[in-house]
Computed example of a mutant assay.
Amino acid sequence: MANLFSSFDPSTSFNLNLNWMSTFIGLMFIPPMFWMIPSRINILWINIINTLHKEFKILISNFNIKGSTLIFISLFSLIFFNNFLGLFPYIFTSTSHMILTLSLALPLWLSFMIFGWLNNTTHMLAHLVPQGTPPILMPFMVCIETISNFIRPGTLAIRLSANMIAGHLLMTLLGNTGPSLSLLMINLLIIAQLLLLILESAVAIIQSYVFTVLSTLYSSEVI
């Protein structure tokens, strides 16, 4: 490796450019649900989907088209699988790269903006000035709200990729110190790595949920 961050470069491992195929590994877990005898994993995933459907239905209550929550459930599933698979050895974490996270966030935000400005122009203009703003502050509030609106896809993408990189980088740094440690310190290092792995598993779930919920909230504002 040329530097520490080259461990996240998809072109360095084994001199193969197939690492992005890890994005599609998660799809292997989905099809058996539809043709195999229902298992505990199947029941668990159905419960997760039903819970997410109820959550998103409340958030986008103004949008009463059937199946409108499915796009957000699919988005949650894609990010969740990629985050979780990235914790396994030798599997490339595609969600730690801005090229994937920005590809998810930017089209969603852009479609919401186009839909909102074309169909609810007055509603979108009203969002630029929060209720109860003094008249003298209105021009400043319009500038602030416009800037905050434009940086939304960037914040979504950076939040996800930064959280994925931070945990993996910490585990890499701790793991590289292993050969130079004593037996007692190696035992402590293994315990610390296991605790970090549990933390990263929680982060994988939380970050996929946060990304999806924020996307849902942004969509509810344009209706």
Rank of each mutant, 00 (worst) to 15 (best):
F84Q: 02
L70I: 12
K66W: 07
P134Q: 06
L214Q: 15
M171W: 10
F5C: 06
I65Y: 10
I65P: 07
F140E: 05
I60V: 10
T155H: 13
P130Q: 04
M33F: 14
L18W: 14
M36N: 14
I79G: 10
R152G: 08
R40W: 10
N3H: 02
A202R: 03
I136R: 12
L70Y: 15
N17A: 07
L102S: 10
W45C: 08
S6K: 02
M185F: 14
L199A: 09
L59E: 00
T177P: 06
S208I: 02
L128C: 04
P130T: 00
F34H: 07
M171H: 11
R159Y: 11
I49T: 00
I99C: 09
S161P: 05
W35S: 10
L16G: 12
P153V: 00
M21Y: 13
M171F: 10
L87S: 08
N149L: 01
K54I: 08
I25P: 02
L44Y: 06
V222P: 00
L217E: 04
F56E: 01
V203S: 04
K54L: 11
L18R: 02
I58F: 14
S96W: 06
T23N: 03
I151N: 06
S7T: 06
T101P: 02
L128S: 04
V129P: 08
S68D: 01
S219A: 08
L70Q: 13
I206N: 02
L170D: 09
R40I: 11
I41Q: 03
N15Q: 04
T23C: 05
S22P: 09
T69K: 08
L173V: 15
S22Y: 14
L110M: 07
I43A: 14
R159H: 11
S182W: 11
L102Y: 08
L118T: 13
L110I: 03
S103E: 01
S68Q: 05
I41D: 00
R152N: 13
G178S: 10
L18C: 05
M1L: 04
H53A: 11
I191D: 15
S22E: 13
M171I: 15
V210R: 15
I99K: 08
W117N: 03
T146Y: 05
W20Q: 05
Y209G: 03
Q207M: 11
F76P: 02
L188K: 00
P135K: 09
I58L: 12
F24K: 01
P107Y: 06
P89A: 00
W20K: 01
I114L: 15
T101G: 04
P107N: 03
E221P: 08
N176H: 03
I30L: 14
I147S: 00
Q207E: 15
W35Q: 04
I65D: 03
L118P: 07
I206F: 14
S161M: 10
G132N: 05
Y90D: 06
F84P: 04
N163C: 12
L137M: 12
